[in-house]
Amino acid sequence: MVSKELHFTKAAEKLGISQPTLSHQIKMLEQKVGYALFNRIGKKIELTKVGEIVQQEALNIQSSLQSISSQIEAFMKVEIGELKIAVLPGEITDLVSTLCIQFNQLYPNIKVFVQSTDQVEKTVLENQADFGIGFQFNRYDILQVTKLYDEEFYLISNQSNGEQRISFSSVLDGPLILFPGMHQCRKILDKTSHEIGRQLEPIVETSSIESILKLVRSGIGRSIVSRTLYEFYDTEDLFFQYIENPVLTKEVYLVLKKNCFINYAARKYIELLVREIEKLRFHTEEDAIASLQNSIL
């Protein structure tokens, strides 16, 4: 302000401080720099060559601070930045990836990285992901684990036999088209079949849900998929049955670090996820969802 007004009294008035205070601050700055910043000629002053250098650098600093503020504001409003999500391989990955379509439509300038991993907790703990989604998590003190909903599994086919429910052992009697062994749904099926003394022998294995649905439509066999996938994909021409004896369900959890900054992108994605879960009428624990929503506001 002094370099702009070239007058201490006028500069002090513009800054809202006393003239002696301003003069003292300029003297302290000159002592720090080691050179005079102004030539004082009677009541008039002018910038020295050193003063011109300091003035230019000060303007550069001011511009940088404004740029920092603008970038932070843009980041908080999801105009720029990225979102990293860690998920277990399988239907959770499909759910998260499918929601990315809606998220991109709402926030086209945000980059989303979906990491499919068996070590969701480790990824979140090491700050490689903003949050994670999966079936089971250890209750670390520094992690906030929230149950999102109960995942059900359906038997799907291209024609109806008029029965709403079917026993798991009966499911194994017909040809099956299933995900490969690394898929979370398949792990549940392998474990359950082993418990009843049976062995899964699918006629086709594929990691593509689109391929599974296409094969089921063609009548090659039936399949077992999560309700998440059944609801999220075009399955109006297919039929589903509830599986019982035993019932196949899995609890889906969201995990994030406690007392950590949750960026705007992560908050908005979690809000979108919760809305979709509620819209599909999954069985949720209202208190847990409310607690999650309060923690990310």
Results as ranks from 00 to 15, higher is better:
7 H>W: 06
7 H>R: 09
10 K>A: 07
10 K>T: 05
13 E>Y: 15
18 S>L: 15
19 Q>G: 01
20 P>I: 11
20 P>Y: 14
23 S>M: 01
24 H>K: 10
24 H>C: 05
36 A>I: 12
38 F>E: 14
38 F>H: 08
42 G>Y: 03
43 K>I: 08
44 K>H: 03
47 L>P: 02
55 Q>H: 04
55 Q>I: 05
56 Q>K: 14
63 S>Q: 08
65 L>D: 07
66 Q>H: 06
69 S>V: 10
71 Q>R: 11
75 F>L: 02
79 E>H: 14
81 G>L: 05
82 E>M: 04
84 K>F: 14
88 L>K: 00
89 P>E: 09
99 L>K: 00
105 Q>H: 09
108 P>H: 04
108 P>D: 10
115 Q>N: 10
116 S>E: 01
118 D>Q: 08
118 D>M: 11
119 Q>W: 01
122 K>Y: 09
125 L>I: 07
127 N>K: 11
127 N>A: 06
130 D>V: 00
133 I>N: 03
133 I>T: 04
138 N>S: 14
139 R>M: 02
151 E>G: 15
154 Y>I: 03
154 Y>L: 11
156 I>E: 08
159 Q>E: 15
159 Q>A: 15
165 R>L: 05
166 I>K: 13
168 F>G: 08
169 S>K: 02
172 L>K: 08
176 L>R: 12
178 L>Q: 10
180 P>W: 12
181 G>Q: 09
191 K>S: 13
191 K>G: 08
194 H>F: 06
196 I>G: 12
197 G>T: 07
201 E>C: 14
206 T>M: 03
208 S>P: 10
209 I>M: 07
213 L>W: 09
214 K>G: 00
219 G>T: 04
221 G>S: 05
222 R>Q: 06
229 L>H: 03
229 L>D: 00
230 Y>E: 13
231 E>W: 15
234 D>R: 13
244 E>W: 01
244 E>T: 05
245 N>G: 13
245 N>I: 09
247 V>L: 07
252 V>G: 02
253 Y>F: 15
255 V>H: 08
257 K>E: 08
261 F>R: 03
262 I>K: 00
264 Y>D: 12
265 A>D: 02
265 A>Y: 00
268 K>L: 10
269 Y>A: 07
276 E>I: 01
279 K>Y: 02
289 I>P: 06
289 I>R: 08
292 L>P: 00
295 S>C: 01
296 I>M: 04
297 L>P: 08
